[in-house]
């Protein structure tokens, strides 16, 4: 059995991605998040052979090598990586705090890149024509007050993805981004109803982005149905304008 790594699997869109992979494919899922193990009971009971939960704090970029060597590679060959974990540090630029900015980039960019390194190495070793999917954000494409720093981390990962696709395409390894609009998850829980209403007014469909629609797009990009799709971004954002 081949495995798909999903970071930030314990809640929100990450949890939905894991559930869809487990219910609609034969892949196993390796969930990585700070609270993976506590949040995993239900999935472990339902899919004891196909789900593994690893508790890991993705602000620790340097420890990822050991995480791969000691745990991930012993589970089985990797078919896919979904870089979904993200931290949101929202503020206007004049209040920029370097420590918080660095912490956000550790999770959103450096860990995602480092996990991609080991996923690609695993794919090379096992000759797997695998798929990497990064979860970006509509904020990287449309400006929102207070999201410039978060959006910058997502812009970085989109550029990384496009170049990864170019670099490894000859080995059949694909890399794409899904760009969700605002969803009703804990990431957006700090927004007031008024702020949310104004954000949703900027979409063609005039409402929040559906979490399951985002997850099923990720599933599609992981699958063979998307074998000719690489180096691109797929917007799942209710038509944000």
């Amino acid at each position: 059995m081949k495995w798909i790594i999903v970071t930030g699997d314990s809640r929100g869109v990450g949890r939905e991605i894991v559930q869809q992979i487990l219910s609609e494919t034969d892949f196993g899922v390796i969930g990585i998040s700070r609270s993976s193990i506590e949040a995993a009971d239900e999935l472990l009971a339902k899919y004891p052979d196909r789900f593994r939960a690893l508790s890991y704090d993705l602000t620790d970029v340097d420890g990822i090598k050991q995480l791969y060597m000691d745990k991930i590679r012993k589970i089985g060959p990797i078919h896919g990586l979904v870089n979904n974990s993200a931290m949101a540090y929202d503020d206007i630029v004049s209040n920029l705090n370097v420590q918080q900015l660095q912490q956000m980039f550790q999770v959103n960019v450096f860990s995602a890149m480092h996990l991609s390194k080991y996923a690609i190495r695993d794919m090379l070793l096992h000759k797997t024509q695998g798929s990497i999917v990064h979860i970006s954000s509509i904020s990287a494409h449309t400006g929102y007050k207070g999201l410039s720093m978060y959006a910058a981390s997502k812009g970085a990962i989109e550029a990384f993805s496009k170049n990864t696709a170019r670099e490894w395409g000859s080995k059949g390894i694909r890399s794409n981004c899904v760009v969700p609009g605002f969803m009703e998850t804990s990431m957006s829980s700090t927004l007031t109803d008024d702020q949310k209403a104004r954000i949703y007014q900027r979409t063609s469909l005039k409402k929040e982005t559906d979490v399951s629609s985002v997850a099923s797009t990720v599933l599609f990009l992981l699958s063979d149905q998307a074998k000719s799709i690489t180096g691109t971004v797929v917007h799942v954002d209710n038509g944000t304008i």
């Binding site: 190495r121 695993d122 090379l124 070793l125 490894w168 000859s170 080995k171």
Partner: peptide, 11 residues
């Protein structure tokens, strides 16, 4: 790319 493959096999 071949050196990358060699690297992972040696590892």
């Amino acid at each position: 790319l071949m050196l990358a493959e060699l690297t992972v096999r040696i590892e």
